[in-house]
Each structure stands twice: as structure tokens, then as C-alpha cells.
Design a binder for these strands. Structure first.
Lengths: 218, 218, 218, 218
DNA sequence: TATGAATGAGTCTTCATTCAT
DNA sequence: GATGAATGAAGACTCATTCAT
């Protein structure tokens, strides 16, 4: 139950606009410098508002972080389903979801790093909400894994463990981007890792299907 | 070239003792609360010394973090080789190294999380030193991957990518330990992941060898 | 080029008011206790503002000292010309300038002592700016000396040396005021010193002119 | 009555040696950086002793300053009489005393500046002792002025005022040395100022005597 | 509603002083 | 007597938060 952040302003449209303004600025700054090294003044400046205004829409600095983290995770939850819409076949949908996930992360490296670094900076209760949101994103991937198993394309492995590996692979891209920078694109990175990952997972039917997809896309 | 931290005390033995005292306390606190949320006073208190003493052995607070991060990474670099000493066969040594790595991480979850969260909190030059140290640890694993390839046990895959996956799997244990807590032990976690990971890597000879090792240890 | 002190507030009027408030307090305290023995908290208290406010208008404590010293010297530079306005005759103007100078110093003994004691407490570059300002004040006196020489009232002596003696005499009043306290007023002190000083300087015409002025004022 | 500084060591010879060691270092450092900007550690280092030792011979940091100031003033009191020993004639002795005074100051510019800047840094009671010592030094000069008056070489002027001017002239050399640096030597500076100063003071007999002395030394 | 000046609690850091060896 | 490591009180400075306009 995403606990409500108190605002001193009533107009819901205005609240939404102002908050997204401030959160947008904060994601950039928190991601780049970290939560503590970023001042509310800086956030306000980048958002193009006054310091005082921030406190009309957020209770305190932690509220900003909390909503920023939620915003980041919500973006994942929203974009992955969109990427698989209208795609035929469970394996193809699985591949599309993973690629979408990695692409979202690549487009929001600051935000992803932020989620990693600063989740601990919010209080216990809120941290649990964040973790909950994270699990929901994972569930989006996990559903595709389960579908592939049901369709007899994947062996009967633990879907959670597989999902977990995928998530880690994607996050690793953000966390250690400096490591691969210039050597690999996201798509290449995902493809190679997917190849390794799928190898033991695919059933005979899955293997044929996968081959068809990969060669078709090549 | 690990840049030297200035100490106002000369006695090398004392410096080593005091620093490790303070660093020990700081790893716990930085790991649990983060760098900024931890005060020097708290570090001193937990280390059982006065605030002033800290500044006899460290130039400033960032020095503590820098040395703490180095200490964490040095621990990895030292314990992995020790775990593979006297072990026969490249595949066995590879498995031992991975398990050792995961075990060290499991024993120092705070420290690992610290390395993830706070590397950005040190200045650019020092951050590079830290990253360098990290690469050196990775190289320890990578060497075993190469040995397995040379021995014809692994297919001719990119050793760096494999190493990278192993590192991420191990780190994931620390970063998302709360996810698995109570459901899996480290050893189980590593074994399962290793099984998935090795599947596409092993040559026919490697597969037989691996089977022998796994059934022997069971 | 009087290097600008950064303020976090833009409103120029407010900046001027707040700064003069703080500088006024600082001149008193720095003059009485010295720069290091005065805390920023004390300055804020005496200025009737919060500690934090001080840092909205000054970069650091040294900035306060620097502006305080400049304020003191600017006061001299401004009041001496005002004291000689509308006065006839170079000798009369010279005497008026010296008296004005001494009176300003007498009215700001704390500030003068401050300038003596604490000029060394600001960094090299700023110290040079202060010295420059000091020279400008001296130049105001020196101009009158030159005028008297040109008018044939003073012998052709080194104007700089004479100015220097006057400055020293005036400063001596501030530095060693305790020595004369109760025995001499500033005016008496200046008159006596001027009598001694002028004796060898005056030409025959100057001597007659001086006599006329002194007896007129008596 | 020069209040005694407590020492934890009894051996008088040792106390004298250690104290002069520390005071020597402190005069240099206090003179260059000021009292507050100099740490006890630095003094000890320059004196070639340990920090702890300082507190065996001085009660606290202010004691060091107090003794340092006394040492400076004692040096004046001791060297001026020595410079006039065996010199014939009151005017010659007067001139010798003034030159000696200026030379001592020139040789100890740091110390003189120290006396000016930091006298306020000692407590009230001790400040009075310092001022007393200063007056005693002045008295040495004043005696020569009185002798010259008695001998009919000086007009019957206020000896205190004259002495005061001399003292200021000499101190000005130290305080504003940067102003004259490279343009005048001490001796030139004193001679010129003395010429101006003596002009109104000398009686007819004094004038002849002075001429004789100046031309003889030329 | 929006502003941004003002506040003051809390942090890092220094350094005089002590004291066990 | 001498040392220098250890202490902790105190100061400069920052920044989240408030509030009058």
C-alpha cells in the first residue's frame, strides 16, 4: 500500500506536475552525486523552482528520494509490458521482455544506480515498499519464464532463479557500465548473456524455436 | 600505486593496529548506514577510541572510506588464492575459487554492499584505484577460467564475460541477500548457479570431470 | 581590483545592510579580542542574527575580516576629503586633513588596532589589496604636503617621509592610547606633534602663515 | 613584579636552557604566523623537543607568549645601554642610543611585530607587566633626552613626547618595513628622521654640536 | 501558491593539554 | 626528565527546514 506523501497543496493536477518536476531533477542529481551529497537547494534549482516550493509538495528530503525510487521502479513496470504487446509466441515475448528491460535500464543508468545505492537511505517501512515494487518488476519477467516452461520450450527449472539471473545481468550493465563501455552495446551484451543463459534451459523444441528467432532477427 | 594516507604517528605497528581498529568499525557502520549517515564520532565510539585519535591516523573522513574499501577488496584478493592452494585439477580449482569468493562475500555482506554503494563517494583518482583493485580480484577468477579452457574442459568462450557473470552472481548474493534469506544457503545458491552457468561451458571431457567432482562431494 | 565576496543572496540592498551589520559587529569584536579569539557565533550574536545567516553573506570567516579591514580603510579615504572641503589655503587644508585623520582614528581605535593586528591574518593576495588601500589613504595626506611645497610654504623635503611620520603619529595615538589617556586629548596630541613636525618644514612664508592660522584658531 | 611561570622541573640551569630553546622557536613562529595560527606542536618541533616537554617548562601556551614578549623587551633593555657605554657627550650618546634601538628592532622585526600584534593575546594582568617593560625601555631613551636638555643642547621640550616619537619612528620601521624595503637602509631611515626630529629641538649650542658629530661621522 | 531569507542543530576537524611509559 | 600517543572540548561551516511576505 504505497503510503501517501503529504502535500500542502490540494489541486491534484498541480501536485502531479510539481512533483514530477522535482523528482525528475532529483533522479538526475541523486543518481550522479548520491542522496546525501545532493542538497534540496540544488534539486529546486535544477527543477526551476524555489526551495520553499519543494516543501509544499514533499514532507521532507526523504520523501523526495522515496518517490524518486518509486518512479524509477514504476517506469520498469510500465515499459516491459508495453514492449511485449502484440508479440507472438512465449519465447519471442520472453526475449523481447528481457531486451526491453535492459534497454530501460540502459536509458536510465543514473536511476538504476540510484536505486542500488540509496534504497538503504529510506526508512525500514518504505524500504519494504520499494522492495515490493522491485519484486513486482521481477514478476513481469518471471511470468514469461513460466510461460516458456508451460509451452515446453524451457526445461522445468526454478523460474525464480532464472529471473534472478536475468535481473542481475541487466543490472550489472548499469552498475559496471564503465567496464564494458566502448566494447559492447547493450543489445550485444544482452544477446551474449542470453545465449549462455538459455543454453541449459532450452528443451529440444525450445532450441529449434530459439534458433529460428535468432536467425530471423539476424 | 595505492596513494599513501598520511598519519601523524610514526610507529608502523601502532599505525597498522589503530587503522584496522578504525576501519573495522567503519566497515560495519558504513555498510549498515552508509557513508554520509555515519559520523566520525560513531566510528570512534565503536572502535573504542576518541574522536581526536581518528584524525591522528587518517587525514579526513574520506580517507577512512578509501582505506575501508581497499581493505574489503584486499580481503578478497588474499582469501581466494588461499582457498585454491593444494587443490588438484583446473576444474576443481575453479569451483573452489568460486565457492571461496562467494563465502568471503557472504561473510562480509556489509562490506560488499559498502563497496557497491559508496565507491562513488570517493574522489575520481581514488575511485580508479578502487576499480583497479576490483579488476585484480576478477583476474583471480578469470585465470581459473582460462586454465579450464586450456585444459580442454571449457569451450572456447570469452573468459572475461564468464568471470563477469560469476562475479555478478556472487555479488547478487550480498546485494539481494534479503531475497533468498532462509530459502537457500550460500553453498546451495552457488551450486545451483554454477550448474546453470557451467552447462553451456563444459566440453564433453569437462562434463565427465564435473560429474565426477559433484558426485564425489555429494 | 577589490575581489568580490560571494553572497548567496541576490538583493543588493539587503546584502549591503546585512553585511554592514555583521561587519560592524566584527570590527568591535576583532578589535577588542582579535580575529582568532572571536568566534563567528559571537559576531552573529552581537549583530543580532543567526550563525547561519553570516554564511549567506560571507564565504568564510576570513571574508568577514577582509571586508572589515576594507571598511575601516574606506572610512579614512572617505572622511579625509570631506574634512578639507571648502577650506581655503594649502596649509590650512593640510592641517585640517591631519586633524581629520587623527579624529577618524580616535573615533575608531578598535578598528585601527584591528588593521594593525590582523592584516597578517588574511591571505597574501588580499593582504596586498589592503596595503594598496592603505597607500591610497596616505596619498590623500601626501597630496596636501605636495601642495604646501608647491605653494612655497614647506621646504623641499621628501613628501613621502613626511606623510609617513604623520601617519605614524596618528596611528601611535590608537596603538598606545592607554599611554596618553587622561593626559592629552587627540587635538592636543596632534597640535603638539604638528608643532614639532612643522618646525623644520616651514619656509619663512610658511612660518608666518602657520602663525596666523594657529593664533586665529586659539 | 614579573610573575613566575611554574615549571615542573627544578634544575634552574636546565629550566633556563629549555625555556630559551622554546621561546626562541616561538618568537620566530609567533612573529611570522601570529599566536593563534601557531601550534604548540610546531613550536616544539622547531625547538627540537617533544610536545610534552613544553608543558614541563610552561604552564600553558599563553605562558610561552608571555615569556616570549618579555624576552623581546628585555633584549631592548639590555642592548641599548651596551651601545652607549664609553661614549662621550650627551648628544652623541643620545644618537647612539637611537641608532642602537633601531638596529635591535631591525634585527628582530618578527619579534617587534609580535609584540605589537599579540600583546592583547595575554591576560590583563600580564599585559600590564608587558607595558611596564615597554615603559622601562622608553625610559632608557628618555634619560638621554633629559641629559641633552640639562646640557643645554635641547630646548626645554616635553621629554616624554620626544621619546614617544622616537619609539614610534623606530617601530614604524618594523611594522611597515615592506613600505621602505629596498629604498632605504635602517641607518638612512634613522638619520633622516633624526634630522627632521632634531631640527626644532636643538638649541644653538646643540646645533653646532650636532653638526660636528654628523660631519665627523660622514 | 510561490519565494527565498533566516534559522540552528549537527558535522567534521583542530589542537591545547594530559599522562602512561 | 623526556616522549608522543591519546583525549575531548570547541570552533567553523553546512544544509534541511520554516515562515513572513
Amino acid at each position: 500500500m504505497p503510503e501517501r506523501i503529504k502535500s500542502k497543496v490540494d489541486d491534484a493536477v498541480l501536485v502531479a506536475r510539481r512533483r514530477s518536476q522535482v523528482i525528475g531533477a532529483s533522479i538526475q542529481l541523486f543518481g550522479k552525486r548520491g542522496y546525501y551529497a545532493t542538497t534540496v537547494r540544488e534539486i529546486a534549482e535544477r527543477a526551476g523552482v524555489s526551495t520553499g516550493l519543494v516543501y509544499q509538495y514533499f514532507g521532507d528530503k526523504e520523501d523526495i528520494l522515496f518517490l524518486a525510487l518509486q518512479t524509477v521502479l514504476d517506469a520498469y513496470k510500465e515499459r516491459i509490458p508495453r514492449a511485449t504487446e502484440g508479440i507472438e509466441g512465449p519465447l519471442m515475448r520472453f526475449r523481447a521482455a528481457v531486451h526491453a528491460y535492459a534497454r530501460v535500464i540502459d536509458a536510465n543508468i543514473d536511476a538504476t544506480v540510484l536505486a542500488y545505492r540509496e534504497t538503504k537511505s529510506v526508512g525500514r517501512a518504505r524500504r519494504d515498499i520499494i522492495k515490493q515494487k522491485e519484486s513486482e518488476t521481477n514478476a513481469l519477467i518471471e511470468a514469461h519464464v513460466r510461460d516458456c516452461i508451460k509451452a515446453g520450450l524451457f526445461e522445468k527449472v526454478d523460474p525464480e532463479l532464472i529471473t534472478y539471473q536475468i535481473v542481475m545481468i541487466a543490472h550489472a550493465w548499469a552498475l559496471k557500465a564503465w567496464h564494458w563501455a566502448g566494447r559492447l552495446t547493450v543489445e550485444q551484451y544482452v544477446d551474449r548473456n542470453l545465449a549462455l543463459l538459455l543454453h541449459p534451459l532450452l528443451t529440444e523444441r525450445g532450441r529449434r524455436e530459439n534458433l529460428r528467432l535468432v536467425s530471423a532477427s539476424a
